[in-house]
């Protein structure tokens, strides 16, 4: 474990140095990712000037849920955006390299690089949380600790879902389209809390593609005076379990995929 961490830090320090080569573009992208992440906050502010309560949610509550999602998403982007490159690495035969080294291939794959632009999403997320948090309920140390657990669970859920789709590249050699679709889905449905949508959408996003456990359900833990969530109030605390289950599934399918991987001939 300790050895893994040491290797990880070494690799990422090298990554950071490589990134610092174009400081202007680096800073600009960081700022613009953060700005882009705040678009929905601005648009929601505009809308709530006309309609203060949308489907029972006020501005601060809506911003809290979308920022909670964006914060988790920031961790996902930073530490595992690499999954987007899997199809390319499979096609080019780079995966061969990971299989012959004496370390877990999955660790090697994700340690290859972190995506620093994820910091922009983290900035936007933390900005929205700080803006909304004081207005939605009372805070104490327990709740802050729970918030950490929720954020990490959210990041693991997105990681697991993306990995499940990305791993299809081992068989089909292309997974970008599928992942792009999930990305659009996450992007669009994180605009507003799940209560806004009709029953069919709620069922799909809770039990088929459980992205609502990233932010929507756990957000009830932190909001005072809200009616219970759709379906059952047990779901509010289910995020860590959902994350663990999906992570196990993703790792299992990853292993299957590695076995199916045939390398690239030349």
């Amino acid at each position: 474990m300790f050895a893994h961490m040491k290797i990880y830090l070494r690799l990422q320090a090298a990554n950071l140095r490589a990134r610092a080569m174009y400081p202007l573009n680096f800073t600009l992208i960081l700022v613009s990712v953060a700005f882009f992440g705040m678009t929905n906050i601005i648009l929601t502010w505009v809308l709530t000037q006309k309609v203060p309560i949308i489907a029972g949610w006020n501005l601060y509550q809506i911003v809290f849920v979308m920022s909670l999602w964006r914060f988790s998403h920031g961790f996902f982007i930073t530490f595992s955006q690499q999954i987007w490159n899997l199809e390319y690495l499979v096609r080019e035969g780079v995966m061969d390299r990971f299989l012959v080294r004496p370390l877990n291939p999955m660790f090697q794959f994700f340690a290859m690089r972190i995506q620093i632009y994820g910091f922009g999403d983290l900035l936007a997320g933390i900005g929205g949380l700080v803006y909304a948090a004081p207005h939605i309920g009372h805070w104490n140390v327990q709740k802050l600790l729970l918030l950490v657990v929720v954020v990490l669970s959210g990041a693991v859920i997105e990681w697991a879902l993306m990995t499940l789709l990305g791993v299809s590249a081992f068989w089909t050699l292309q997974s970008g389209g599928l992942m792009g679709l999930l990305d659009t889905l996450l992007d669009q449905f994180s605009r507003f809390p799940l209560s806004v949508y009709g029953r069919p959408v709620q069922i799909v996003l809770s039990f088929v593609l459980p992205i609502s456990f990233m932010a929507f359900y756990p957000s009830y833990i932190f909001m005072d005076g809200m009616e219970g969530p759709p379906f059952s109030s047990v779901l509010v605390y289910a995020s860590p379990a959902v994350a663990a289950g999906l992570a196990w599934l993703a790792y299992y399918v990853w292993r299957k995929g590695l076995n199916a991987y045939q390398g690239a001939g030349s």
Partner: peptide, 21 residues
């Protein structure tokens, strides 16, 4: 697919907004 998804999301959101006032 992405476009149809966006249309579905926007329709649901606006229906909810109009339902709220």
């Amino acid at each position: 697919c992405s476009s149809v998804l966006l249309i579905v999301v926007l329709r649901e959101i606006w229906t909810a907004v109009y339902g709220s006032g």
